[in-house]
Design a protein around this nucleic acid. Structure first.
Lengths: 259, 259
DNA sequence: GAGCGTGTTCGACATTACCGAAAGGACTCC
DNA sequence: GGAGTCCTTTCGGTAATGTCGAACACGCTC
């Protein structure tokens, strides 16, 4: 594990989380490093456009290079490519917004977002990072990880986003067990007040979770008794279709949970 | 300039350009490094989710972390934030798509994209990287850079994207001089066959170019004699408005060129 | 104008990452 | 089926490399 690269990545992480513009001193303090160390790393990152420096204040922020890389990631993402059509079809069938996501660290990153087909103004959430414990997308993924990975993720901090966010280890463990039993995850206003989610895991050809697909929308619509079961079926069907496109066999450990 | 970080950035660059999945050997060859060196760097990048490894083939690709960073960059971008409203208004006024971009290396990165307001299916180009010499957005920016920076960028390779792409130093120099004289840039099918662009530079509070804003659409509509002058005026007005919001003074070196 | 807060430069120390050579697998082709 | 040929990965010595303390230059506030 190369130390300086690790520190450079840590700097990018700090610049990417919360406050967008930081000084050398501030970054050095947050990472517990000497100022010149951080300065050298920053200069290198600036040279590669991964970090930009405000020439007036001297403070640093992320640079346009990371956006370019992010776009390249999306272009190359097999999960995203395979889910485009199924996500569209799920959105039409359910008349709700669809998100496809994958896990990165302890957060879930939105790879694809199909707007609810009703011509209202919606903002694109592609690239958004959501704490895994606060959304159905995250539950669907983490519930099917290998035990050691799941343990590592459970050990991380779990700050509540709304009054309904589950944060205790017991509550989350129980939720995950339920996801494994049922084959889908439901979240009711744990990430955003008013919004709920229904998600199911997507499996790759090795039989491990590659991500998840979810319906996201107002809780009263998504969880209404009249619609809920149909929506769940639609989500699970879509997840299975994407998994099949990714090459997952029928006998995968996760797929059996879905059937 | 820290060597290992530079090499890590180079690896990200290689993974982000063209072929999405590469092996250790391939990357090592392209960068002229020893295999174990690349391997160590990759392991570190994988640990931070900036790179992902296909556990079946062993090959590497960009990871979800870069997408998260790209999104964070957009959230923190002052240029993007200030241009949101003006871009929307420009799109309405011109009834064409609007792009806002900034320079990264020798390419122009799209920060914001307002669809043409006609309900047709369009794909979002945010994050796309376009060679500076092939688009009006790039010309508008490079024409107003400091001489040394402009020289550095002129020195880079200029591959043609269409049959009409200008690639000679003379032709580009002449085009840039024209941009400086007129205060806007026009491109006719140099990046994409059928599409043209009209762009104007955006200036920050220090009086240097922060990016550019452009109308992008079919050449026969954008460059029609009946509409062209109105569209140019609309673009230049928008660029000036965004610049003002960014705090640019009236006496800036670039702004004078605009008036 | 003194004091504090920046971002930045310098240089010596020893930590650190580089690379050659070789090992462990997977696949193919005879 | 077994030898050949890729591939990724591991090891360990060497010297290049990045780290950090102290000091500099600058802008701001009091």
């Amino acid at each position: 594990m190369i130390q300086s690269v690790e520190r450079a990545a840590a700097i990018l992480g700090v610049l990417g989380s919360g406050t967008p513009r930081l000084g050398v001193t501030e970054i050095a303090n947050r990472l517990g490093l000497a100022k010149p160390t951080v300065y050298g790393l920053l200069r290198t990152l600036v040279a590669h456009d991964l970090v930009a420096q405000d020439s007036l204040t001297g403070k640093y922020s992320l640079g346009p290079g990371v956006l370019q890389l992010g776009n390249a990631y999306l272009d190359g993402s097999e999960l995203r490519a395979r889910s485009l059509l199924w996500a569209e079809s799920l959105a039409q069938r359910a008349n709700e917004a669809v998100w496809v996501a994958t896990l990165s660290g302890t957060r879930v990153i939105v790879l694809h977002h199909v707007f609810r087909p009703d011509n209202t103004v919606q903002i694109l959430e592609v690239g958004a990072a959501i704490p895994w414990h606060a959304c159905a997308l995250g539950h669907a993924i983490v519930a099917h990880l290998r035990a050691e990975e799941a343990a590592r993720i459970m050990a991380a901090d779990r700050a509540p986003l709304t009054g309904r966010t589950k944060t205790t280890r017991a509550a989350l463990g129980q939720a995950l067990a339920q996801v494994r039993r049922r084959g889908y995850a439901i979240e009711d206003q744990e990430a955003t007040v008013g919004d709920a989610g229904i998600a199911a895991p997507i499996v790759n050809r090795e039989g491990t979770v590659a991500g998840s697909i979810a319906l996201v929308g107002p809780a009263e619509r998504l969880l209404a008794h009249t619609a809920k079961d149909d929506l769940i079926r639609a989500v699970v069907d879509s997840a299975r279709s994407v998994s099949r496109d990714l090459g997952a066999g029928r006998g995968g450990s996760v797929l059996t949970a879905l059937s």
